[in-house]
């Protein structure tokens, strides 16, 4: 009987498989996300003139130098306006569309769903071009359409005026991306068990009450996700504004958001030379804003949400 004694409690072997399974993701993520991120942060502590380490000097310039701070705060303000328009227009309308689509009595649901989701799949360059044409005071259909309805006196070159350009661009972006909150809400609404809804109807609830008292509380987690996706997306936004207004984000910087400010700073513009160090500083602030937003969401929203799994 020379067989080794079996341990009463067999020690767990080292979990090699976990490392193996994690390795691809960790490697790819480190190489393409974490390393560039850290390197970009490093760049923001380096002087553009001397190439030496300057600590928080670039940040100080960004916040306190009049030339930089006016553009920075302007871009931040515009970015919040851009975000608010999305939150107040895109997400409620997305919810409304999802609620309508999830009604059993509605016909051609799939057709509507596809049509509403279509713009999301188009390139931003195409979206920008199409809307520039639609709203063009020279050849756009917008003015003709308004004349047809009899409200042509309200037509304005919206994409060119200082106080209308940013809201117009935000609404174009809403039009394009409305499909995403709609689909997320739609999926969440479909996930609500029928029993709950039917029970409510049996108890004599109206459709309105059912939506607000039963369905809406159940999709609150999705509302949070849509909110945070909108936030992250908007504070990283750049492409639509760059396509329509260029990196100088005119008129008079009224459409300048963090993304265009970063691009202009980092890469330069016409005769303005690029300044990678200050660009990295702007990027670091963008990262910080998004981090704070996501943290607020995690702490303030996600932890309080309870899910009612049926």
């Amino acid at each position: 009987m020379q067989t080794p004694p079996t341990h009463p409690k067999k020690r767990k072997p080292f979990p090699t498989h976990i490392i193996v399974f994690l390795a691809p993701a960790v490697l790819i993520y480190t190489l393409f996300m974490i390393y560039p991120l850290i390197d970009s942060l490093r760049l923001s502590f380096i002087s553009n003139e001397t190439g030496g380490f300057v600590g928080f000097e670039n940040y100080k310039t960004l916040f306190t130098n009049d030339l930089w701070s006016v553009r920075f705060w302007g871009a931040l303000k515009n970015n919040f306006v851009f975000f608010l328009i999305h939150m107040l227009v895109q997400n409620p309308i997305g919810l409304l569309l999802a609620a309508l689509l999830s009604r059993r009595t509605l016909r051609w649901t799939n057709t509507y769903r596809t049509l509403l989701f279509m713009p999301t799949m188009l390139s931003v360059v195409i979206i920008g071009f199409i809307w520039q044409l639609i709203l063009s005071p020279l050849w756009g259909v917008a003015e003709g359409f308004m004349t047809f309805v009899g409200i042509e006196q309200y037509f304005q070159p919206w994409l060119g005026l200082e106080n209308t350009t940013l809201p117009t661009l935000a609404l174009i972006s809403v039009w394009q991306f409305i499909g995403i909150p709609m689909m997320l809400f739609y999926a969440a609404l479909l996930g609500i068990p029928d029993e709950l809804v039917e029970a409510a109807y049996v108890d004599g609830a109206t459709a309105w009450t059912v939506f607000w008292r039963i369905k809406f509380p159940l999709i609150l987690p999705t509302v949070g996700i849509v909110g945070i996706l909108t936030f992250v997306g908007n504070f990283n936004a750049f492409d639509l504004i760059y396509t329509v207004k260029g990196a100088l984000a005119g008129p008079n910087f009224s459409t300048d958001i963090m993304g265009t400010l970063f691009f202009r700073t980092f890469f330069g513009q016409q005769l303005q030379l690029g300044n990678p160090e200050m660009g990295a500083t702007v990027a670091a602030i963008m990262l910080l804003i998004i981090l704070v937003g996501v943290l607020l969401y995690m702490v303030g929203w996600q932890r309080r949400i309870q899910t009612y799994e049926a």
Binding site: G160, L248, N252
Partner: peptide
Amino acid sequence: NSYQILSRGEPNLENELWRVSAQVINGD
């Protein structure tokens, strides 16, 4: 006039010319 020497700093004179010229024509 914005191309030689005068575009070497921030704010860039050429960018500023774009901005203010457009604003003057817009009447802003």
